[in-house]
Amino acid sequence: MVNTEKFIEQAIAEIREKSHGKKVVMALSGGVDSSVCAELARRAIGENLISIYVDTGLMRKGETERIRELFSDLNLQVVEAGEEFFEALKGVIDPEEKRKVIGEKFIRIFEREAKKTKAAYLLQGTIYPDIIESEGGIKSHHNVGGLPYDIDFEGLIEPLIDLYKDEVRDVAGALGLPAEIQHRMPFPGPGLAVRCLGEVTPEKVEIAREANAIAEEELVEQFRPWQCFAAVIGLGTGVKGDVRLHGWIVAVRAVHSRDAMTADAIELPWPVMHKISSRITAEIHGVSRVVYDITPKPPATIEYE
């Protein structure tokens, strides 16, 4: 395990040294990685840190509002960009293409906003597994390599690059961040877009959003999963109130893991699965079917795309 005190001391020194007294900008998602980064930077350089939160329209229910509240003491700029993202995603079906489109859009918006701040350095919460998946060609991550920045930052600062997620959580605890952030489930950069198989439409995202909220409500507290979520995976025939419904199929997934490198599905009690299925079909119009995914990683990955 990482020695958190020593790590924090070194990371603060690293940020201070690498930023040369100039302004630093970062993209804050509210996840544990970027939150830890922000707190380290706040301690290292204070007012010289500017954080930008991009609302992609692909965030979970209530997420943007909550992040505004949680980081109210930080120099946080919120950019509403939902429409831009849906426009860019029209007709995009291939998962890798989807990730690229979102990554590209994210970078352009972030660049646009970052330029206004006149920051010299970019701070990123990249952790080790992001690099492994990108290097291995499994999934590209929007915050790792390959993406052309048209903005001339003098340098990149990545203080968490050698850590795994569980270690970042230890650091979050040692920094005294709220438990809500320390234990926040991983949420992929492309957001709900990778939980809507095929084309991303506002309708599917809305269904995914509601279904994710239900899955989290029923599972997070009771089972403490590494990650749990719902994905809209396709269409199937159902019957609701004696009327045929060619409706959406929602897959629920809940896994235990230490570091996201391997994972296994949680053995949920039948009544819990039953409740999730009834709630999702009853509360969300347009859903005809709910399935529970029992595949471990490997051979599956945790998210669908």
Binding site: Y128, I132, G136, I138, M261
Partner: peptide, 10 residues
């Protein structure tokens, strides 16, 4: 170049 190589290091 395997996914788990860095886990060995850890």
């Amino acid at each position: 170049f395997g996914q788990f190589n860095h886990l060995i290091k850890r």
